[in-house]
């Protein structure tokens, strides 16, 4: 039995976490400062680009990074799931850094992942890093499509995707501050990477800009809230 759905607004009252609400096709979504999207009506959490076992993947190529990335990502995921207690999780691909990632995973971490999978339903979408046969290419529900990489949209279609690891640099009075972010317009919601070692691609870079020809909003992640800017404000260089 899943735990009762918790209305996340109370985290705002506590002052510890404030997610940003957005509305699409009469549905309400919350953009969480952890980088996940919460879909309260269907008790769903959406995350992108976990890149589990990235460190061990790079190790095969000679960079011996601290082997604690999967652990850190799972810590974050566990915290997120215990906060919202969803019924299901949609992972938008690149959940593992490469197709052999699961095989390399330390037994402890693999056990934790299995436990999470037993507690809520996981829908694994295939990514370019982990094109597993068992994973789905995309998931469609109502007007919504969940896929790894943004694609051409049908009229009325609303898409949630990952892949690009968007991050934005915002000029402030003191300094430019770069953080991972969501990017959204009326049709697309691009999620930041959730994985501990997943880097970022600037939202001003051509692949991301091309997805938002008429502009959009940047939702910058911070420790316990989201900051909102027009995409044009981050898009400084042509």
């Amino acid at each position: 039995m899943p735990a009762p759905w918790r209305e996340p607004a109370r985290y705002g009252i506590d002052g510890c976490m404030i997610a940003a609400p957005i509305h699409r096709a009469s549905e309400r979504f919350l953009l969480d400062p952890s980088g996940a999207v919460v879909w309260p009506a269907s008790r769903t959490i959406i995350v992108a680009d976990l890149h589990l076992e990235k460190a061990s993947s790079l190790a095969t190529r000679g960079s011996l990074l601290p082997p604690y990335d999967s652990r850190t990502t799972l810590d974050r995921l566990t915290l997120l799931l215990s906060r919202y207690a969803p019924e299901r999780v949609i992972a938008l691909g690149d959940s593992f850094h490469d197709p052999l990632g699961l095989a390399r995973m330390a037994p402890d971490d693999a056990g934790r992942l299995a436990r999470l999978e037993s507690e809520q339903k996981f829908i694994w979408i295939a990514g370019n890093h982990d094109p597993a046969e068992s994973a789905m290419i995309e998931l469609r529900e109502k007007n919504f499509t969940f896929r790894h990489e943004a694609s051409r949209l049908a009229p009325g279609e609303i898409e949630f995707s990952g892949h690009f690891h968007p991050k934005a640099r915002i000029a402030t009075r003191g300094a430019a501050i770069a953080r991972p972010c969501f990017v959204a317009d009326a049709h697309r919601i691009l999620l930041p990477a959730f994985g501990a070692y997943a880097g970022g691609l600037d939202v001003t870079s051509p692949p991301i800009r091309a997805l938002f020809p008429r502009g959009g909003q940047v939702f910058l992640l911070s420790r316990d809230r989201i900051y909102t800017f027009p995409l044009a404000h981050a898009a400084k260089a042509s």
Binding site: I170, A171, T172, G174, A175, F229
Partner: peptide, 11 residues
């Protein structure tokens, strides 16, 4: 914490 104050101001 300083960064958050700046972001808030910019926002």
């Amino acid at each position: 914490g300083g960064e958050d104050a700046l972001l808030e101001e910019a926002e």
